[in-house]
Design a protein around this nucleic acid. Structure first.
Lengths: 188, 188
DNA sequence: ACCTGAACACCGTTCAAGT
DNA sequence: ACCTGAACACCGTTCAAGT
């Protein structure tokens, strides 16, 4: 019988888990190799170096996390409903908890920067469209999109910064509704 | 003549600079020692270990950065003016650029967690008071404080995530005014 | 095709010894 | 009081060799 051998995806999945938990520095070859039950040498058959692992893992996340959510709500006709559902999914599901804060913190990282920028621009553009559909003029729609996206980013970061304090952030549905009302903005 | 010798504060200052630039993992003994022109061994006379350096540096930042700003605006009588000035200082000055995102990303870190939590709670409490002075009932004031603080955190993080894109975030005073109007909230 | 094992450079930590 | 210098453990990377 053959021993179980690893695929590239096994490394990517492990890397994303480590990234979310311990930040960019936790994407470390030796600990991941131990966790996967192989030696460090085997890593370098799948990837050229640690940077390549990080880049590929983030690109995979970009596909799965970002684009999937937008696809999920893009078909909702009413812009108000669309925004509500978008924020609800983004705030309550948070598929890989802690990943986004880890990325923003390493915004200067040459691997992280281009991916984070693409994701941010895509999301802000999508929000801007939705606010335009709500009737806001172009400049106003873009500014509202920036403010709403800022509040979203800040909210999920606060939730991490204060795990047991500030209980409204984690649990209270009324506080969440208050946030979403604010995100939907002046015409909501 | 005596050779220049280092104080604890020299290490703290160097550590905060490294932290802001490269995150928690950049607070590294050997690179800092090289930068300061001493050997690694000398570090361990001033601090028990790397963790102590990080902790002391963050406590110093907590004193200087957080409390100083609140003191600076606490005397402003009109709550609307107070909030405007607070957000203006917090958003435009950003004394150690990139420090806060670095901290939020390592919210799980046992050194970072308690300090980040104290700072967050102090700021949210201060905002809550100001919104109460503006006439919001207690629960509403607290929720508005959370939303406003989220938007503030998200905004400074967006600014880092997209350095040359999204130019409104960095430069445009009108976009900033739009943000502050939103932060000041329903009665602003 | 996928992995081991040994090698080397770099950082965290300790500690005896220096001034 | 403050620092050096050598030691050891740990992680990133390389590469020849194994199956």
């Amino acid at each position: 019988m053959d021993v179980a051998r690893l695929s590239k995806q096994d490394w990517l999945t492990a890397a994303l888990g480590a990234l979310a938990q311990g930040g960019v520095s936790a994407v470390a070859v030796v600990p991941l190799a131990q966790q996967l039950g192989v030696t460090r040498g085997s890593f370098y058959w799948h990837f050229t170096d640690r940077t390549a692992l990080l880049r590929d893992a983030l690109q995979w996340w970009e596909q799965q996390g970002t684009i999937a959510v937008i696809d999920q709500v893009a078909s909702i006709a009413d812009p108000r409903d669309k925004l509500r559902e978008l924020f609800r999914i983004a705030i309550t599901e948070d598929p890989v908890s802690g990943l986004e804060p880890a990325l923003v913190a390493h915004a200067d990282d040459p691997v992280v920067a281009p991916i984070l920028r693409r994701v941010t621009e895509r999301r802000v553009a999508f929000l801007t469209e939705a606010y335009a559909e709500l009737g806001l003029p172009a400049t106003r729609a873009r500014r509202q999109a920036l403010v709403a996206y800022s509040a979203y980013v800040g909210w999920i970061q606060l939730r991490r910064a204060t795990p047991d304090a500030l209980p409204e952030i984690v649990g209270d549905p009324e506080a969440l509704a208050y946030l979403v009302d604010n995100l939907i903005g002046p015409t909501g």
